[in-house]
């Protein structure tokens, strides 16, 4: 799709904007530029998780295209896992620069680690059900149960425990505390990384489709 090919133009532009065009933040200086990579990968981790969950719900409630939905849920979780690892790495670098240590078990740090653990658990469950005929059904239910625990992490626990993490984009005031150039760069980066995820996800789905076709052909022979 042409839309996804736009990342070949957008990505270099976003990298240029992040390092050259956007001004450094007041206290952190140039170290704050990690914001343009950390926030988008965190966003994509959650998007991939939601896509996985939605595909799992569709797998359970619809009768058609079930095999396709099963690998679409799996592929989104596998792509999301990579983005979650990138979020943890960029987040810990940022934590070291602003708080002095790589890991503090801040509620926001914990929530992304939990998301990573959910992905690991889902992929482990999926692989251990390799021979089971109801593999798609069981792993879909796990993803749905995991998905309903996420709002507790994202919205409730950070309000019970105090956090050092800067305000998220979706904050209680509903305001974004960034200069216009920084805001444009951040949103461009979020769009670009979302397209990157879409591009990778589409490629993974095509590979799975080809694998299934090859498998079916093999059985026909």
């Amino acid at each position: 799709m042409v839309l996804y090919r736009l990342i070949f133009i957008f990505m270099p532009v976003v990298i240029y904007m992040a390092f050259m065009w956007a001004p450094p933040a007041a206290i952190l200086g140039d170290a704050s530029r990690i914001l343009y990579f950390h926030v988008p990968v965190a966003w994509v981790s959650v998007v991939a998780f939601i896509v996985s969950g939605v595909q799992s719900i569709l797998f359970l409630v619809t009768e058609n295209r079930r095999r396709e939905r099963e690998y679409m849920a799996y592929n989104s979780a596998a792509a999301g896992m990579v983005f979650t690892i990138l979020t943890v790495i960029t987040g810990s670098i940022w934590a070291k620069l602003s708080w002095g240590s790589y890991w503090n078990w801040d509620p926001r740090e914990t929530s992304i680690v939990v998301l990573m653990l959910i992905y690991i658990a889902y992929l482990s469950l999926y692989s251990s059900l390799k021979e089971h005929p109801n593999r798609g059904g069981i792993s879909s239910v796990y993803l749905i149960i995991a998905m309903i625990t996420m709002p507790f992490f994202i919205f409730i626990i950070p309000r019970i425990y105090s956090s050092l993490h800067p305000d998220t984009i979706i904050n209680q005031e509903g305001k974004i505390h960034l200069e216009p150039a920084m805001r444009i760069t951040l949103f461009s980066s979020i769009v670009t990384f979302t397209l990157l995820y879409g591009y990778i996800y589409r490629l993974m789905n095509r590979i799975s489709r080809l694998e299934i076709k090859a498998e079916e052909k093999h059985y026909d022979i």
Binding site: V114, I120, Y122, S124, L125, S128, T149
Partner: peptide
Amino acid sequence: LFTVISFPVMIP
């Protein structure tokens, strides 16, 4: 596997 899949959901 039970411990692996239970832990993330049980953390809250």
